[in-house]
Design a protein around this nucleic acid. Structure first.
Lengths: 140, 140
DNA sequence: AATTATTTTAGAACAATTCTACACTGGGCT
DNA sequence: AGCCCAGTGTAGAATTGTTCTAAAATAATT
């Protein structure tokens, strides 16, 4: 689905800033970015956008379901362009962050949700020390 | 092991403040607390301690391995008196936080750690919507 | 008691994020 | 084309959890 339609479905206008930021993020590659990363990417791409707008836009994308918030760290928020159910391998020393496909892990023994509650998500973070295999990884 | 020895093992003096904060936390009940919670508990118990000391002490306890940092949320850090391997059930609406024993979940398909890296921890957070069963839970 | 190392503290500093309040846009209407 | 106006974008202030700083207090050591 094109970004324009995704935005409209979520009740957001397909404005130039949103399309520009979306264009940086949704190019087919899975990315893990912080708001600052996005601001830098925009600056390098010659897109003039304020940090407030970066934050607003990322939050709107999350609300629209086209971006995912990942919680790994108390002092920065990562956003993931891969919105499918999946997990993360986090190299704490380097900050590298790799996706682990949701269906590659099988979790048994999950407690049943009590009456009136629902499992929204099951998130697995594998925290690693040392360094990842040296590939041009999907680093964060 | 008594707190005094645990502190000494970690190279920390068993000072009155540390013993007092430790006494509030390590009373046999598993607790999830924020720094603010601890400051409040101390105030209510008549222990005069600055917020800076609460932070210092909690961080030292984590370094000493007698307290665990849990990352669930970008805007506050939770500390867990249960330092064994285990997971969390987090009720996002109420903020309730329940422990899930480590051995009650079986995770299959974990990727092998590459050469030079090591799995430090596998953390599972089950995010729930709705409300937990009404017990006097180990809320956070 | 004097000396030295460690701890505690108040308050300043910091950094990520959100808020505020105003300026700007651009699509719909004549 | 020109006018509206709701929605959008922005700078800078505000907020908040946490850490830092530098000085005062305490504890250990001689």
């Amino acid at each position: 689905m094109p970004l324009t339609s995704q935005l409209q479905t979520a009740g957001l206008r397909a404005t130039p800033k949103r399309l520009a930021i979306g264009g940086l993020l949704f190019d087919g590659v899975d990315r893990h970015v912080t708001a600052d990363d996005v601001a830098d990417m925009a600056r390098k791409a010659g897109i003039k956008v304020s940090l407030a707008t970066v934050y607003n836009t990322l939050n709107q994308f999350v609300a629209a379901g086209i971006l995912k918030r990942i919680i790994l760290d108390t002092d920065r928020t990562y956003f993931d362009t891969n919105v499918s159910d999946h997990h993360h391998l986090f190299y704490e020393t380097s900050g590298d962050l790799l996706d682990v496909p949701g269906d590659s892990l099988r979790i048994e023994g999950l407690p049943a949700a009590p009456e009136g509650a629902r499992v929204r998500a099951v998130e697995v973070v594998i925290r690693m020390s040392g360094t990842p295999v040296s590939t041009g990884s999907t680093a964060g």
